[in-house]
């Protein structure tokens, strides 16, 4: 059935049929971001020169998602790997796909360093406010008062700091030619636009791009569908504003 759809052009070419249905939970934001990314890969025609790299965590389930050459790296080290790839093969279009743990915790120094250097890479981050895969521990993006397995009484801002504002901090570090934005899996057409701009910034302007998407994790939030959406659209969006934080002047 899936092959039929692909033949009829109803699935992206970049979408690897053999690994579908994918392994993400029902209601998981990863499936939506990756679907958007597949559409954009098709639109920009980067099947041959595209390389996809993912982190440890639920993002790792995307290691064989695309019909692209892909590599799963160590936790937080996805950005340096794509930086290395791009350094020696500037003709490639590289995407680092990470979670809030890999991007804002163990991998933060690499993300900031890459932004400062204006490495011509694209980093895509799924923010679901916790370390889903290892049993729901606190992440940099965990909201104040949110219960996780290492904040069983609720996250204390006093002890652990406030939720991490990734695109805000990265755009402060990045150069004028970077593209930095935050979108949401609940706004799909916008999500694709953001991904397209990010990749074009790499391909046409040889500059850095970083995009964060508010993503859903009903499994670890233990929420019913309506509450899941509410958490993303209300609680999370209140803390993490959806906007383009850095847009180079001539990027249409």
């Amino acid at each position: 059935m899936i092959f039929e759809l692909a033949d009829k052009g109803l699935r992206p070419k970049a979408w690897r049929s053999e690994t579908k249905p994918h392994r993400f939970c029902p209601g998981c934001g990863h499936g939506i971001i990756l679907k958007g990314l597949a559409d954009v890969i098709d639109e920009l025609g980067i099947h041959e020169l595209g390389v996809f790299a993912c982190d440890i965590g639920c993002s790792l389930l995307s290691w064989d998602f695309f019909n692209l050459d892909s590599v799963q790296t160590h936790h937080g080290r996805t950005v340096p790997v794509v930086v290395g790839l791009k350094k020696v093969r500037p003709d490639l279009t590289v995407v680092a796909y990470v979670g809030d743990g890999g991007g804002y915790s163990i991998g933060l120094q690499h993300l900031i360093s890459s932004a400062v250097r204006n490495d011509p890479v694209t980093v895509v981050l799924a923010n679901n406010t916790l370390y889903a895969m290892t049993g729901g521990q606190m992440a940099p993006t965990t909201l104040s008062g949110q219960k996780t397995s290492t904040t069983p009484y609720g996250r204390s801002i006093e002890e652990t700091g406030p939720p991490f504002m990734g695109p805000e901090i990265v755009s402060a570090a990045a150069s004028d030619s970077a593209y930095v934005a935050r979108g949401s899996v609940t706004r799909f057409p916008e999500l694709k636009q953001i991904l397209k701009k990010a990749l074009l910034n790499q391909m046409l302007r040889s500059s850095f791009s970083f995009v964060e998407f508010l993503s859903s994790c009903p499994t670890n939030w233990r929420t019913k569908p309506a509450d899941t959406l509410k958490f993303v659209n209300e609680d999370m969006a209140r803390t993490f504003p959806l906007k383009e934080h850095r847009v180079p002047k001539d990027l249409s």
Binding site: C58, L60, M133, T134, T219
Partner: peptide
């Protein structure tokens, strides 16, 4: 059938839901 057990969580499936 599960990839990266313990590293990438234990996902929920449509069947379970």
């Amino acid at each position: 059938m599960v990839f990266g057990l313990g590293e990438a969580g234990v996902p929920v499936t449509e069947e379970m839901v």
